[in-house]
Design a binder for these strands. Structure first.
Length: 288
DNA sequence: CCACAGGACGGCT
DNA sequence: AGCCGTCCTGTG
């Protein structure tokens, strides 16, 4: 564990608020100086934008450059992606201008599965609180700059946690789902490594749907926001339903719009970049 | 105190 | 196959 720093020139597609507040992650917190601090596996990282630079500092075992290049997906060309999507229509163009600094992170698969099971029927402050309590209770403590941070617990660290312990941490009805999914993964019923190696998105989706607490929306979030990194999925939550109805479908009662209709429209308009289109539209609608 | 927000799931049609 | 009530907690 050692203190490291990595500095790069500012990027057009890299804004702290856009990246950390667009709903894809739960473990980053804004600091008094406007920077954000979070935990990436067993590394504690702070990201700051200053003058013409993006500055990553942190305490980590590996090379900080490798860690953030992968996690923040710095080798993907967002300018090209945004250009393609902006050409589709004016709505998308507007939403991309609003969320121009979004990047989709490469988050740990196990952590993403558990985090999005917790997200079901839940709001962001509460999700963050629950994940923080789970990490504090079952993860490893790391001290940095006088603060205590906690790694997200491993499968091994969670496999003996009882349903009641989850309930006591405030999981609510998600307690049993978290327990069952942890068992399915730790006993090898679902193999995370084979999910990472499988390039067939539909097959991976089918596997994820076998996990307790993973339905269509959560499965798509895992595919899009984890290291599985699939852009060709379209998570439909209430905000996406709302924005798709308001912009394109224009049904009086948005609850009456079928998921199939939204899915077909997304596929037709956005194709294999529909996951990214979803994220710009979602963020724009939720923040406006 | 009540209404509401937020997905999965199982039972029902 | 689609619809609907229930699951839990925090907020207004």
């Amino acid at each position: 564990m050692q203190e490291q720093e990595y500095k790069i020139k500012k990027l057009d597609s890299f804004e702290l608020k856009d990246i950390f507040e667009c709903g894809q992650c739960f473990r980053w917190n804004e600091q008094k100086d406007g920077s954000y601090t979070g935990v990436i596996k067993d590394a504690i990282i702070n990201v700051k934008i200053e003058d013409e630079n993006i500055i990553f500092t942190g305490k980590c075992k590996g090379n900080i450059e490798d860690i953030v290049n992968y996690y923040f997906d710095l080798n993907t060309n967002y300018e090209e992606i945004k250009q393609k999507l902006s050409n589709i229509d004016e709505y998308l163009k507007t939403s991309i201008q609003f969320g121009k600094g979004i990047r989709i992170l490469n988050q740990d698969l196990w952590e993403t599965i558990i985090s999005f099971i917790i997200s079901a029927n839940n709001n962001i402050p509460r999700i963050k609180g629950i994940i923080e309590r789970i990490s504090k209770r079952y993860g490893n403590e790391i001290q940095w700059n006088g603060e205590k941070y906690y790694t997200f617990p491993s499968i091994e660290q969670m496999k003996n946690v009882s349903v009641q312990e989850y309930r006591d941490l405030g999981l609510g009805f998600r307690d049993i789902r978290l327990y069952e999914t942890t068992q399915m993964i730790s006993n090898g019923e679902i193999k995370l490594q084979s999910l990472k190696e499988n390039t067939n998105t539909q097959q991976v989706r089918e596997e994820l749907l076998k996990l307790s607490g993973v339905g269509p929306k959560v499965a798509d979030c895992i595919l899009l926001f984890s290291e599985l990194k699939r852009y060709d999925v379209f998570p439909i939550d209430v905000w996406v339903r709302r924005v798709m109805n308001e912009l394109y479908i224009k049904e009086d009662d948005e609850a009456k719009v079928s998921k199939k209709k939204i899915e077909d429209l997304a596929e037709k308009k956005f194709g294999n970049l529909k996951g990214l289109a979803q994220q710009y539209l979602f963020y724009w609608r939720r923040e406006n």
